[in-house]
């Protein structure tokens, strides 16, 4: 185990290096630049001054080496936008994203897995069709549309929930207040992630129920529930767990629309703003964070495989 983890750590370093190099290249390839500025009314002199200040007049290789050198000291430099330290901004934003993403993930798991199980066990029943239908609505409904609808119903009409932000401005922090603000964005986000779990749970479990051992166990008179919960579901969880490993990084970097509409100051919003402004250091910082999340969640998935099915080994 220790050796396995060590190997994975070494691999992780390679992945980080590859990702950062590729991203650095792509960022430089992309049209536009931070010196362009989001206004038509800036002069060439201003742009030249900014290019110098931001070090963009240096060759790509020099800039990359400098970046790697400071990144190794966990210093991602300063934003090309408001010039704050990238580390500081990410430290502010990451917990917000983890809270929102975590809530959405919890809802997805708590609702998605049981729904997938029901759908599989009562295959082709009315409840299966209902679950299928709603899960595809979840995939197809545009987040902006669903979010506005929820705000109209729950905020504007029934005045039950706050429409945006993480807390009521000026009110001291309280858990209740934070949770109230969390409900709508977490719902929207979960609606998009949940169908993935439902669909994979359903298909894997159907496959599992069709297996010999389940039939045999049933024939021997083992109660259906027991067969399902002890064996079939556990085996069927392998694709579901894999998908979880894919969803987690997406929640960290990709909850853009939800964060934007609900004014939730998270990483997704930051990622898009820094892409639009070509804020290279911020993009690099966010990419490294997302890469770490990818690596860790896929490692956890691989470890979970061994737990779900002890025969699975690597190598």
């Amino acid at each position: 185990m220790g050796r396995y983890l060590l190997e994975r750590a070494v691999q992780a370093c390679v992945v980080l290096l590859v990702v950062s190099t590729l991203t650095f290249l792509m960022v430089s390839l992309a049209p536009g630049g931070p010196e362009i500025m989001m206004t038509m009314e800036s002069t060439p002199e201003q742009r030249e001054a900014l290019t110098r200040q931001l070090g963009l007049d240096q060759p790509l290789v020099v800039r990359y080496v400098k970046w790697v050198a400071s990144a190794l000291r966990a210093d991602f430099g300063r934003s090309f936008g408001d010039r704050r330290k990238v580390n500081e901004v990410i430290r502010e934003r990451l917990p917000n994203t983890l809270l929102l993403g975590g809530a959405a993930l919890a809802v997805s798991i708590l609702v998605g897995i049981p729904a997938g199980i029901i759908s599989a066990v009562r295959r082709y029943s009315a409840s299966d069709h209902v679950v299928t239908f709603f899960s595809f609505i979840g995939v197809s409904i545009p987040a902006f549309w669903f979010a506005i609808l929820l705000i109209l119903v729950f905020t504007v009409h029934f005045k039950l929930l706050p429409a945006s932000g993480m807390a009521t401005p000026g009110v001291p922090f309280s858990l209740g207040n934070r949770l109230l603000h969390l409900i709508l964005p977490a719902t929207v986000l979960a609606t998009a992630t949940l169908p993935n779990l439902v669909r994979f749970m359903r298909s894997a479990l159907i496959e599992e129920i069709g297996q010999d051992y389940v039939r045999t166990a049933r024939a021997k008179g083992l109660p259906n529930r027991l067969v399902l919960s002890r064996h079939a579901i556990r085996n069927a969880l392998i694709p579901v767990v894999t998908v979880l490993g894919v969803l987690i990084p997406r929640l960290v970097g990709g909850a853009v629309i939800t964060e934007t509409i609900f004014g939730w100051p998270g990483m997704g919003q930051l990622a898009v703003a820094s892409t639009i402004g070509r804020d290279f250091p911020m993009v690099m910082g966010i990419t490294v964070v997302v890469a770490v999340v990818v690596i860790v969640s896929n490692l956890l998935v691989d470890l979970a495989y061994g737990w779900l099915d002890p025969r699975i080994t690597y190598g």
């Binding site: 902006f144 979010a147 506005i148 705000i151 109209l152 905020t155 504007v156 005045k159 706050p162 429409a163 945006s164 932000g165 401005p169 000026g170 934007t260 509409i261 609900f262 004014g263 100051p265 919003q269 703003a273």
Partner: peptide, 22 residues
């Protein structure tokens, strides 16, 4: 007494919040 400037990049969200009185 106070003015709060809320960061809300999305225009639809601005409208919704305006209708909600926020």
């Amino acid at each position: 007494d106070t003015i709060t400037f809320k960061v809300l990049p999305d225009v639809n969200a601005q409208i919704a919040q305006f209708l909600a009185g926020d």
